[in-house]
Write a protein that binds this DNA or RNA. Structure first.
Length: 228
DNA sequence: GCGACAG
DNA sequence: ATCTTGTCGC
């Protein structure tokens, strides 16, 4: 079987599940491949992926924005459209969004050094959110950045940028609530693949110097909503 | 049994 | 995610 993305050292392709039961089984199997230690080289190009849907036409659009890790300026982008193949079910988001995302990433001229994913990483009931799934399939380092919480509890955190609180679930630290702007709602940050939680927090602050959302996500979002 | 529930 | 205008506030 061919790799999911040419030139990327990830997990080999398999058919995408159609049923909830099989999707759960896939998560339970692939979760063991997630690496939550820092395991990446110099960050030169970072990429974010975002998906949008046209319900009426049954289409999923995925947009990738690749940025220079230092200047945070757009260096490359790609768009891809395919039929929607899975409904939105909390905890199974990746089976709806990841197929198009992985293909879109493969359209970039070069694989990025890091992926910033709009969704949870390990902050997931089975520790295998969208960012873990895309990270494991592509083999690329990935961090999960969600605008709201899926599971877990956290203590109140300070109102200023940089304040954060650990996210706990079943007596485990699964991520962190992180304030990237004074007085705004926190983001929910968690490891996707090959990045530690501490580094995720550090990187999200670095990539969101001004706005609540990291710059890569803002750009990917702007690209994808030009088509849904 | 009753809520909660990434995008 | 999507349906959707103006408007309040820094």
């Amino acid at each position: 079987m061919p790799p999911v993305v040419a030139g990327m050292d990830g997990v080999f392709s398999e058919p995408w599940p159609t049923t909830e039961a099989v999707a759960h089984a896939v998560q339970e199997r692939l979760r063991r491949l997630v690496v939550t230690r820092d395991d990446f080289g110099p960050l030169r190009r970072i990429a974010a992926v975002d998906a949008h849907f046209s319900e009426d036409r049954g289409l999923t659009w995925a947009a990738v924005a690749e940025l220079d890790a230092d200047s945070l300026e757009l260096t490359s982008s790609a768009l891809l459209c395919q039929p929607t193949r899975f409904p939105y079910i909390p905890g199974l988001l990746s089976f709806r969004e990841a197929p198009a995302m992985v293909e879109a990433i493969g359209l970039l001229p070069e694989p990025p050094d890091l992926l910033v994913i709009d969704g949870q990483g390990t902050a997931h009931p089975r520790r295998f959110g969208l960012a873990c799934h895309v990270g494991v399939l592509t083999g690329l380092p990935a961090i999960g950045v969600a605008k709201s919480r899926l599971v877990g509890r956290y203590e109140d955190l300070g109102e200023t940028r940089g304040s954060c609180a650990l996210l706990w679930h079943r007596r485990e630290v699964i991520g962190a609530a992180l304030r990237t702007r004074d007085g705004t709602n926190p983001l929910f940050v968690s490891p996707g693949h090959r990045v530690s939680l501490e580094t995720c927090i550090q990187l999200v602050l670095r990539f969101a110097p001004r706005w609540r959302l990291p710059e890569p996500i803002r750009l990917a979002d702007a690209l994808s909503r030009m088509h849904g």
